[in-house]
Design a protein around this nucleic acid. Structure first.
Lengths: 369, 369
DNA sequence: GTGCTTGGTGAATCAGTAT
DNA sequence: CATACTGATTCACCAAGCA
């Protein structure tokens, strides 16, 4: 009896539909898909060009599909596709949406207002985000995903043990660390340029689909783009339905997915590598109150002193800078490991500040880095 | 003279005001505080803890209609305190709000709708979150902060270099890792229980205040609770104003803050950017004889040359103008920092003219450290 | 083949002052 | 209020070229 687990025989399984996402969803039968993953336009509101310090220009997301006249226009767009999405979703189905601070708050509120029930928000921490070139803000190093069931009472699917296994035997947290999509995984178009400005990494979709679907389930992606959702769904033995307005994206996605070789049903094993010990900035010792601004540090040889400042730099005699810089300056050395060089006093004894760093690392104990 | 840097003499500095937060803010002068940090109630499942603007209490009920009713009530509450907050904020002031997925999307949308301009969202990653005991969801291991300036054009404050220093010389990212508030830091009430259910760690406030305020600035916290904001503000030489409805919290906070020993003023100095350093016209280098009219400068890459003229302009091949203009013309770039682009020869070595500017700044006695 | 250097780039709401 | 000018500002990773 090889019926699809979801009994969705009327659906256009494993195809990419053209058209506007809300209208295309309205043409599908209601209560019919298990999961929806949506990567809607972020409504970035970029003004002029942005240059890097080397004067090259940043290739911005300036596509027509990301242009909205106002918050109200974006909200109307959002509420419309959410309404259509909720209709095609099975009663026990769930929704994922990804966004950035530009749009995710509006989207999240609309998800709640549409009747979905929030289960978690998940932070995708990027290991290699684009820096903030002007030094005017924090590096925008993450995006946010919202996971919601169709209704408060939905019996949503969550493969708790699978995710625990993915996380070396401890519960999966709500912050996920992945690199952005680069290298061979990044699709190129016929002209050799990046095919899509916002292609998501397959690792992200992999974790998400392992967590909240089973083999045979139907995953709908109303903003299909170059088909990352379809590629990962096929590899993992899930069915996909994509909706994409632009023919060029549809063609690229179809070719990409055709190249995917599904994993053997038994082999959904994932390798997780232990990372090097996480980097702990000296400033954290100050922020956490382990060292007070104004407190005096001593060099290991007892010859030099410096005072801690509130931003995690040291002020010595005629020198200022990081723990490494001030140590190096005192010793007249080209470099210096400040962690072992500097000591603080506790109960009359001189303790290297590295002991405090170790304490923080012990607390972190997070293999996902 | 020891006037507050912010000239906010009419404000009730370093006090805790009683009352409802919006009404209490409305009693303060407008355009008067530098920063607002808000940790509003997280809402919705807090059974009976939520009040409508008219002070009637929202019944906690599960059905959809009342759920909508409760969203609407929370939104009204949020929009009201945001309106009051924006009024007391200086035009170049900024706002921080912290929340979880239960409320942060509604709050974030309201922040945008109120006219604030989002600068970043920041994720507080907890090193030691409470596990999800039932194994039905991901461990909720983070909370979200929103950082927004009062208006799109506000000249908000951001101590970029200080945060870079706190992070060992690389840009601070939008994900911050701290343990939750436990141990000695966690306030107990007279009955020995934890005094407040959602006390925030001081480390979080430390980073936030170092990042977006200077010593002497006024920080308003309309949901003061047990006064973490006040305690850290006092330690860091900032003024605070707290608003708190519950007398028990006010008493605990006051006692806690009184125990805080402010850090030495010298330790509060923070690394500053070159932008803050005084402007030195290139012509001064010529007037002072550091460069001779007719002397040849080389681009850093060695490909271009130009001659210094007596009025502090450069004459290149087919180009004339400022050090920046000539550099930009040679490189075909939209702009160019001539100070780092152009070099002169001394003892066979190529030295950037920026070194001469630094020499002048040193003579002026400018401690950019 | 290996290792080093150079160049390119990624969902980005990215300037301040004087005229 | 608009325009012009000064001049500050980047992290991690990948690919290609070269020694």
């Amino acid at each position: 009896m090889a019926r699809p687990a979801s009994g969705a025989s009327a659906l256009p399984l494993d195809t990419i539909l053209p058209g506007e996402c809300a209208a295309a969803m309205d043409a599908l039968p209601e209560n019919s898909v298990d999961l929806i993953f949506a990567d809607p336009p972020y409504n970035l509101q970029l003004k002029g060009d942005l240059h890097r310090p080397d004067n090259s220009t940043v290739d911005a997301v300036d596509d027509a599909w990301d242009q909205f006249d106002s918050f109200a226009a974006y909200d109307a767009f959002t509420r419309d596709w959410l309404r259509a999405a909720r209709r095609v979703l099975k009663p026990d189905g769930a929704l994922w949406v990804i966004g950035s601070y530009h749009n995710i708050f509006r989207v999240g509120a609309a998800v709640q207002d549409a009747g979905f029930w929030l289960l978690n928000d998940v932070v995708w921490r990027k290991t290699n985000p684009m820096p903030n070139f002007r030094g005017k803000r924090l590096t925008n190093a993450h995006e946010t995903l919202i996971w919601a069931s169709r209704s408060e009472g939905s019996k949503y699917k969550f493969n708790y043990e699978a995710l625990k296994a993915l996380n070396e035997g401890v519960q999966m947290r709500s912050d996920w660390t992945f690199p952005i999509c680069t290298g061979h995984e990044r699709l190129k178009n016929a002209r050799g340029e990046k095919a899509h400005p916002t292609q998501k990494p397959e690792a992200l979709l992999h974790r998400l689909l392992v967590a909240t679907t089973d083999p045979g389930d139907v995953v709908l992606d109303p903003f299909f783009g170059t088909g990352t959702t379809g590629a990962v769904a096929r590899a993992l033995g899930r069915h996909y339905i994509g909706i994409e307005r632009e023919a060029e994206y549809r063609d690229l996605a179809a070719a990409r997915i055709a190249d995917v070789r599904p994993y053997e049903a038994a082999a959904l094993k994932v390798t997780t590598s232990k990372r090097a010990a996480p980097r702990v900035p000296f400033g954290q010792l100050v922020e956490r109150g382990m060292l007070r601004p104004g407190e005096e540090l001593l060099s290991g040889n007892g010859r030099f002193r410096a005072k801690v400042r509130a931003d995690g730099t040291l002020a010595g005699e005629g020198v200022m800078g990081s723990i490494h810089q001030v140590g190096a300056a005192y010793e007249g050395a080209p470099s210096c490991n400040g962690w072992t060089y500097w000591h603080f006093k506790r109960e009359g004894k001189r303790v290297p500040i590295d002991a405090l760093r170790q304490q923080i690392r012990d607390e972190m104990g997070d293999p996902t880095g």
